[in-house]
């Protein structure tokens, strides 16, 4: 499989898996405004998925389209970061996961916008506008909840501690990456230090990182459960139209 196909799958699978995770809040978020906000973010991410997986399908040149890639691949074919497949848990955990991903996604798309591959650059340019908005909101929420009540502060610190071992994978780099992802780390770290400071949260000092999501070598148990739900309908009724 070509490196470019792998890369388009990495980008598309990140937005697909996180988009699905976020959509799990639809109808059950703490307040109506948050419910609507989460559903809108999920929608943006699924829209970006169509662009990236559409590009992957075009590169592959077989009879698979974006839908086939999303709904007819199994866990071992997915190339998303382990971070985005982690379960939602509570609202604070969902927003911490969102912030960590948005902060990386923002830098990543900013770098990809300068690519000389016209399709990659166009998708990045389009997505970056949406992700800038996502990052603004997840930043505000992390600060509000971190520097909130004792209960919300503790929940946000627990979420950060739990998710921290999944941060490093975003910056691991290999031949399939269209740009050097490790070069995004300084800007990410600077933003993290600023936001966590305002949120009165403490960045864990461990450098241990789980890996295997973006290479497909080893996903966490959570992804299989998620795909079982996400893919059940299209697999039960292949090619259904409505």
């Amino acid at each position: 499989m070509s490196n470019l196909f792998e890369f388009a799958c990495r980008m598309g699978d990140n937005s697909l898996v996180l988009g699905h995770r976020v959509s799990e809040w639809c109808g059950v978020a703490p307040v109506l405004e948050e419910d609507i906000a989460l559903a809108n973010i999920a929608l943006d991410l699924i829209g970006q998925t169509q662009l990236w997986l559409g590009l992957a399908a075009e590169i592959e040149g077989s009879d698979r389209d974006a839908d086939a890639l999303a709904f007819r691949r199994d866990v071992w074919d997915f190339r998303n970061l382990l971070l985005v497949e982690q379960p939602n848990r509570d609202f604070g955990h969902t927003m911490m996961r969102q912030f960590l991903f948005d902060a990386w996604h923002f830098e990543m798309l900013g770098a990809l916008k300068g690519s000389d591959h016209t399709q990659i650059s166009a998708i990045a340019e389009k997505s970056l506008k949406e992700v800038t908005y996502h990052l603004e909101r997840s930043t505000d929420t992390v600060i509000a909840l971190g520097d909130g009540t004792e209960e919300s502060h503790n929940r946000m610190q627990n979420a950060l501690d739990r998710l921290w071992p999944y941060v490093g994978e975003m910056f691991l780099n290999d031949d399939c990456d269209h740009i050097d992802t490790s070069s995004l780390r300084p800007a990410f770290d600077a933003r993290l230090a600023d936001v966590l400071g305002q949120a009165t949260l403490v960045q864990p000092d461990s450098t241990f990182t789980h890996k295997g999501g973006k290479t497909g070598a080893r996903h966490t148990e959570a992804l299989g459960h998620m795909l079982a739900v996400m893919q059940s309908l299209p697999r039960a009724y292949p090619d259904a139209k409505w």
Partner: peptide, 13 residues
Amino acid sequence: RISQFGSTPCKAQ
């Protein structure tokens, strides 16, 4: 501002 998002992707409340 009530929310950065609204009833359609292009709107806020």
